[in-house]
Structure formats: C-alpha cells, structure tokens
C-alpha cells in the first residue's frame, strides 16, 4: 500500500465515522425518516411477535466466521441482531437460542444475550447453554445446528452471518418443521442458495440493515444513512470513471 491509497482509505473511513457520529446526534434525528419497505423485515417482525405469543423458540444462527477473520462484519451484525431479538423476546416462555461455528463467536453470543437480558431487567433468563458452538468446522457446524431446528420447538430461524452453500441444509430442515426462515449472508454463494431455499432472503448490503429495522438504536440508523451516502458517492465515481474512459482520459 502506498501513501496515496493509504490517505484515500483513511479519508473514506474518517468520512464514514463522521457521518455516523453526525447522524446519531439528536439534531440530525429530528426529521422523521422512513425505511425502505423490505418484505423480509416485515415478515421477520411478525414471526418474532408470533413466536413470543405462542411460546415457541427463536433460533439465531450466527455462521462460521471467526471474529478475527475479514468476514467478521456479518458476525457483528448477527450479534447485534441477536441482542435485539433477545430483548424483544424477553417476555417469551422460551428464550432464544444462538448457534455458531466458531469458539469466539459462541462466547460473544453468550455475552450478548447476558447483556440483552440485563438491559431488559431479566438477568435470570440468561442461560449459558443458549449460546452454543454447534461445530468447529463448516459442515460439523451445520450438522450440530440441525438438531436444534428439529428438536427444540423452533418456529423462527434467523440465519445471519457467514455461511457456505451447505446452509441449504438448515433452510431445508427449517422448512420441514414449518418454521419461518430468514437468511442473510455476506457470501455470494450463500445468498444464492438462501434465495432458492429459504422463505425470505436479504440480498447484498440489506444484511447490514437488519439491526436498524429491528430498532437496535440510533447509531444503527445513522450508519445506514452513512452507508447510503457512501454508496451514491461510489456510484458517482464509477460513472465518472466510465465517462473519462470514453473520452480517452486514463487516470
């Protein structure tokens, strides 16, 4: 990496951080903003409500990304989603269960649920067994998660994180139990597989909007706005580069 690309990278990071901070301020939140309608998000909220009402269990599968790997952003989104789901279902008879394919992620899922119940003033609901390592390799993780979907009276499966094409087995198992499945992954292969095999799928960056749609907090909504602005900036730069290329100007 040379100094020019370092400075450009640093500027993008600083701009994103500045926008997140700025949009989180109460002044910026005065104007009421509405989210784009995403059917999957509406169905998830409905499924969460129904699970709490009928006393069935919610299952959040966090994928197999290590928190130290480059794909850990999807795991962070999964943890934020888990925290919100744990809070929303704290009045349920059956608290949610989280499975993961990595040791650090399973420990963080336990910590996340502990924090969620403390915030919801129900610390007694926390059970260390609800944040499980299902298996340490991609396929053993899937094999370890299948019994959770099959045996634990799960009515809603939220598959959010880094998966491979083998996630189809989880979606199929959920379908066999007549449970609702929402799939969201940062992997292109998993997105394609989930689109074909799960009831609802989030494509591309919709994954990162999941906590904001579950009302996880103003910072999540602010980061969504920052993400939108950065996306338009990138679109503009791509169009500009194409035009310059047509005009024979090579940067």
């Amino acid at each position: 990496m040379n100094w020019l690309s370092s400075i450009i990278g640093l500027l993008i990071v600083l701009a994103a951080a500045g926008m997140i901070l700025g949009f989180s301020l109460p002044v910026a939140r005065r104007t009421k903003r509405t989210f784009r309608y995403i059917p999957a998000m509406q169905r998830l909220r409905r499924a969460l409500g129904l699970a709490v009402e009928d006393g069935s269990r919610l299952h959040v599968s966090l994928g197999k990304a290590s928190i130290f790997s480059p794909t850990n952003a999807s795991a962070l989104v999964g943890l934020a989603t888990l925290e919100r789901i744990a809070q929303m279902s704290s009045v349920s008879d059956r608290p949610p269960v989280a499975t993961s394919g990595d040791g650090t992620l399973s420990i963080l899922s336990q910590d996340t649920m502990r924090a969620a119940y403390r915030i919801a003033n129900a610390p007694e609901l926390f059970d260390v067994e609800r944040g499980r390592l299902a298996g340490p390799t991609p396929l053993s993780y899937i094999a370890g998660t299948l019994p959770v979907i099959r045996d634990e009276r799960v009515s809603t499966n939220v598959l959010v994180g880094n998966f491979g094409p083998e996630v189809a087995l989880l979606a199929e198992a959920s379908d066999q139990q007549d449970a609702f499945t929402l799939g969201a992954s940062d992997s292109l292969a998993a997105q394609a597989v989930l689109y074909a095999s799960s009831e609802e799928t989030l494509i591309g960056e919709e994954l990162f909007a999941l906590p904001a749609y579950l009302q996880a907090g103003p910072t999540h909504q602010a980061s969504l706005r920052a993400q939108d602005i950065l996306r338009w900036a990138i679109v503009g730069l791509i169009v500009l580069a194409v035009l310059l290329s047509f005009l024979g100007i090579v940067l």
Binding site: V13, A16, A73, L76, D186, E205, S223, Q227
Partner: peptide, 8 residues
C-alpha cells in the same frame, strides 16, 4: 460498505 460501518 456495510462491513466498514459495522466495524466503525
């Protein structure tokens, strides 16, 4: 972009 904002 989503990964960037999640990390931030």
């Amino acid at each position: 972009l989503g990964s960037l904002t999640a990390g931030l």
